[in-house]
Structures are given as C-alpha cells and as structure tokens.
Design a protein around this nucleic acid. Structure first.
Lengths: 359, 359
DNA sequence: TCTATTTTCGTGTACGCACACACAAATATA
DNA sequence: TATATTTGTGTGTGCGTACACGAAAATAGA
C-alpha cells in the first residue's frame, strides 16, 4: 500500500505538500500540484482511513433529527438504535453523532429541535422531513451554511438532499395487495383503514394505498377496496365504535389493510370472531405489531427495516464526509421484508444483538 | 476517552508495562499487574481499535475455504462477495483475508485446498464443512495448531467451531410449507424433488423437508407430500423424463417444492401447461432462480442471505481475533427472506452495490 | 560474605500514517 | 531595499505496539 511519504519522495516534495494537494488546502503552486496529482492518480492513492481517523480525532459531527418514540409508538426506536449502532461503528473513525428528536405531531417541536441542532454546528445532518413547509425553512438554513443533509424514511421531493434512505412505499403496498389476495384466494372486498393525519405528514401512506389498489388492477383481479378514514387512530372507544360499525354495515369485507404502523390498534378494536374472519395486513415490526403477528391476529407485516435505515444513513453520511464519495443513487431503497409469525424472530437480529450489547 | 498513557500515569508505570498487562505478554510482577488491572477495569478501558490497527499493520490473516462457483451453480458466488466486502471493511484494521475454494463434489479437492490453506499459517479459518469425515481430519489439524474456526452455511454438530453462521433450515422449510399452503388454499398434494447427492453432503436439505412436512402436520392441514429422488439433478434429458413421467402418473400434484438451489432446472423440465398448473417454491436467490421468479414460473424463493453469511462471518471472526470477544451464541441465524417477483429487486442491495464498486 | 551470573521486572522509544500548524525560503510587489 | 505574498518544509500529535535495553532482584559459586 502506497503512503503519502512514498508519494512525497516520488514527487520530490515534502509530505505536508502532498497532504495539501490531497485536501485541496491551497498554498501549492499549480505546477507542483498537478505533478503530485498525476502521481497520486497513477498509483491510485487513497488515504489510509485508519491513520486519518487517528490524526483527525473527532473532526466530524453528524447531527440527526428524528421523531421521538414512546410506548404507544415504538416505531422510531429502531432507526434510533440503527443510528446508535452506526455511531459506534464510525466512532473510531473520527465521527461523532449528536441526536435530536421532535414530536412528530408538533411543528414547533420540529423547528425548535432543529434550532438546537444547528447550534452544535454539525458537519452533516440526517433528518426525517416530517413536515414539508417547515422542512423548506430548515433546509434553507442548511444550504446557506453548506451543510449536506440526507432524508431518512420520509421521501419528499424538490430538495437537494444528498440521498433518501427508506422504502419504496408504492411497491411495499403492491406486495401487501399480493399477500392479501393470496390469503383470501378469491376476489373479495378489503377495507383500508387510514388515519387522516397521515395525509398531511407524508405520502408514504398514500403510496402504499396506491400500490395496494394497483395490485388488483394490474393483475385483473376483481377485488374491491373501501377506505375508512379515522381522524386520530388511537386506542379510544370512539375508534373502536367506528371500526365495529363499519364492519357491521359491510359484512362483505374479508381483509383489512392498515398502511401505517398502527395495526395493533385495529386488532385491539376487533373481537375474536372478526379476527378469525378477517385477514389483516399491516406495516412495521414494532413490538406490539409483532405480538399480533405471533398470536395470529395479523397475517403479514411488511417491514421497512427501520434499524437498517438508521444504520445505513450514518454509514453513508460518514463515507460522504470522509472521502467526499458522492452517492451513486439518490434513492437508497432498503429491502421490503415480508414478516410472518414464523420468520419474524430471525429478522432484525442485528437490532436485538445491538440492543443487548448496549445494555 | 481514556488512553494507555492515562492509565500508565495513574498506575505510576510506563505505557509499555500497561500494554503488557493488557495483552498478557508477561514480564510484569503480580503486584503491579493487578494494580494496573484494577485501574483498567475501573475506567472500563478498551484499546482504541484505530490506533491498534495502525500499529499492528496486518497482523492477522483469516483464511476461508468455501466451494467454488460456476455458471451452472452460482450459489457460492454470494458468500464469496460477502467475504470480499467483509475483507474490505476490516482491511484497515490489520486483517487480511486469503480465500481458498474447492469442488463441492470432490473430497480430494477439499483436502488439497485445506492443505494449501494451512501453509499460509492463518490466524483463523472460516470454512464450509462440506464433507463430514474429511472435516474431522481438517479440524483435528486446526485444533492441534490452536487455530479458531467457524462454520459457514453448513451446520454439522460435534465440533468446537466458534460459531455457525447460516440459516435455520427447519424453519425455512416450515415457512415454505406455509407459503405453499397459502398459494393453493386447500388441502392438496405436493411433490418434493430431492437430489440424492444432497443427502450425503449436508442435512440442510433434509431439515427443510422436515420443516415443510411439519407445517401441514402441526397445523392439521390435510395435504400430502410425495418425494421424487433424482440421483443427479442436472439439465439432462433423463431428469426431464423422470419429472415429466412422475407428474403424468400423479395428476393430483399441485405444487413442487425443491429444497435446494436448483429449482431453475426443474423449471426447465416443465412445459407451460405444467408451469401454469403448479405452484413452485424453491430456495436461494441465484440469477437463474430469480429469472424464474420474475417470469412467474416460481412463486416464492426463500433466501438464505448468502451474501450476509459471508460478510457476517468475516466480521465475527475479526472481532474475535482483535478483542478475543467470545461469541454469545454459537448459532448465528440470519433472516429467512421470502422473495417474490415484486420484492426481489430490493433484496441483497448490498451485494449489487458492492459488486459494482469492485468493478 | 562477597562477587559473578542469571532471571525477573520495568522503562524508553521508534514506528505505523496522516494531519496541520509554525516557520522558512523564494518570489513578487511597492 | 523593504515589505507582502506565495510556496514549500519540518515536526509534533493522535494512540497503541513491541523491541532493545537498563535496573533490580534472585541465585550460584567461591
């Protein structure tokens, strides 16, 4: 492996000069610089990241901004753990992570957390662009400061984000349609239960619904879907009533599709008779959802691999910072995992192992 | 972060002495050693892997021994790529990989490759224990030399391997049963096509078959399975005839289960009428199999995540060598991925990305 | 008991490689 | 010639590793 010292010798300059050329730090005459560059290219030189990390000693700070999690909504715990795992992987390479969270239903909290984030003067930002208008403000500041940023989990268009790391929502919904069709095995009627507030938040839910419907259309399957919109999909008596009433009025329904991570709430609203009669398909491997999967209330869950999203985002950003490696694709789509009661325990092994190690 | 220098100062000894204690290199009086140990523990010290790697400069050599691949059997390409990715990840930490391959149908080639491997004096070995008797010989030599080893993909019992990295074959077969049942949606008859030579090779195939059958038994489903054993499952006219004849004689069969990576050969043996009539479920995401999945000949593939197997094995062994981290579990089971034509392209993204980068 | 020799214990430091600052030399400008 | 600017050099730093060597203690020999 060729080192800076070797290059310096070949070019008849000092190591410091080579280093300046490598990092475009200026102070080198054009002639010398181009000579050195030629030698670098000829030998296909790249810095030794280990030595570099040792010398830099925490030069980079990556800030993350993701929704907070709680017992009722554990979804965001996984990306958080993935980020922590990524942080521990890159820590020794001179990259430090600084994590900020916000309330995903509160724009003020989003903006405030961002402000706190900015004050740490990060070298890069990994964020979940939960609100589109406010994201515009935020991104404006980042761009003014020339701070690269990357979108996690939620994909919104029209920004100069270095990348999006997440799932192809449309195809995930499409696969949900396939699984639903497989489970019922004849043309039927399905109900999509949609929480209203999701609409404003991001388009993942609507893309999933579109994919779900398209499966039947594109494969000429004569199944029908209906949609029940619920303002606030929580564990209230009201929610229970609405779902119950709807199903009573529509006995033809044989399957429920919940295009959010809240299917466990729907399960809570149904009695055993309904649970036996209906096929349920939902999203995300939260503990509550996994419980529903294991006791046969839910047939399939589609996982977004949230842990991997966090992990990948950190690795990606680190690579970008350290070797200015531009990303080949803007959309980093993670696998669309099909979870059943049988394979769920083998999934996200990394997450479990990591959580244990951290304790 | 506390450094060796700090520890040395606190203990009133030199850095070198601390280093000797850390690495049990002897030459330190018991009294001093225990004093230093106490301080190390108290501060929860662990060596900085970056500085360590820089200082060690390729101290460790991990040798791998896996089956070779060719156009007809590309399965082993993925673990190979995973190993390469792992190698590039750990390269800067002072670990070098040296890869050996063998013909998976030839014991001599297995033993010869092993001999060549031994001559490189590796610090650790990652191997696919393809033949049980010969593995005993090999392992004997490794243990005599005190070289740690790890089994990849094939799990055989009665050895002191540090770990097994692969899939839970029984559960994978069980899930195949579930998917088959889902696809047919009523009690039916299924044919398991088994290549005879697999039996001697490893028990993964028989575990998959057991899991497949058990799905119907444990769930009280009145489906039946038959088994067709073919000596050498290749693209011959003979194979074609045997399968054709069997199906003609057993028109009740509605699904084929191929518990090996060779389902594409079975597809080759069937005409369109049969392909439309039958549900096919097989294993492994080889290019040929993926093609069959995409053109609807095969309904599901179960992936062993072979790329991840290789990658994980390398990472695991590296951790073991560098920090003598004993593995918490001996069985490292990777996820059981359910692949359909819709999600297959999102799978093994790492593998594709890595292959591109390497080119 | 005293010196000579071996063994035990501990210290000092060069090295791996990249980085960046302080400084010196060379050149250009006033 | 004096001053500013550009260009290039030298070196300490980050942290752990391991070798060479010195000091101290233990043993042997007389």
């Amino acid at each position: 492996m060729i080192t800076i010292k070797d290059i310096a010798k070949k070019a008849n300059v000092s190591e410091g000069t080579v280093d300046r050329v490598i990092h475009n730090r200026g102070g080198v005459s054009k002639k010398t610089a181009s000579k050195i560059k030629a030698i670098l290219e000829h030998h296909n030189f790249s810095v030794n990241p280990v030595a570099s990390a040792l010398a830099l000693k925490n030069k980079y700070l990556i800030a993350t901004l993701i929704p907070e999690y709680n017992d009722a909504d554990l979804f965001w715990k996984s990306p958080h753990l993935g980020i922590l795992k990524g942080a521990s992987d890159v820590h020794n390479f001179g990259v430090t992570l600084h994590n900020f969270t916000f309330n995903q239903y509160d724009t003020d909290s989003y903006l405030n957390s961002f402000q706190a984030l900015l004050e740490t003067k990060p070298s890069a930002v990994i964020m979940v662009p939960n609100f589109s208008k406010e994201t515009k403000q935020i991104v404006g500041k980042l761009e003014a400061l020339n701070i690269p940023y990357l979108f996690l989990n939620i994909d919104i268009e029209g920004f100069n984000n270095k990348a999006f790391v997440g799932q192809d929502s449309y195809m995930a919904g499409y696969i949900a349609g396939k699984l639903m069709n497989l489970s019922i095995s004849k043309p039927s009627t399905f109900l999509i239960i949609q929480a209203r507030y999701n609409i404003t938040k991001n388009n993942a839910v609507s893309n999933r619904i579109k994919g779900f419907n398209d499966y039947f259309i594109k494969n000429n399957i004569n199944s029908k879907t209906q949609t029940l919109k619920i303002e606030n999909l929580n564990n209230s008596i009201e929610t229970k009533e609405r779902i119950k009433n709807y199903l009573k009025q529509h006995p033809e329904i044989e399957g429920l599709f919940v295009p959010s991570s809240r299917i466990y709430i729907v399960v809570d609203c149904l009695n055993t008779a309904y649970l036996n009669k209906l096929e349920l398909i939902g999203f995300d491997n939260t503990p509550q959802n996994i419980k529903c999967l294991k006791n046969d209330a839910v047939s399939f869950l589609i996982s977004q691999k949230p842990f991997d999203q966090g992990y990948e985002a950190v690795r990606l950003m680190t690579d970008y910072l350290k070797i200015k490696k531009e990303l080949s694709t803007k959309k980093i789509y993670l696998p669309i995992d099909i979870l059943t009661k049988e394979n769920v325990d083998y999934n996200e092994r990394n997450e479990l192992v990591f959580e244990k190690v951290e304790k």
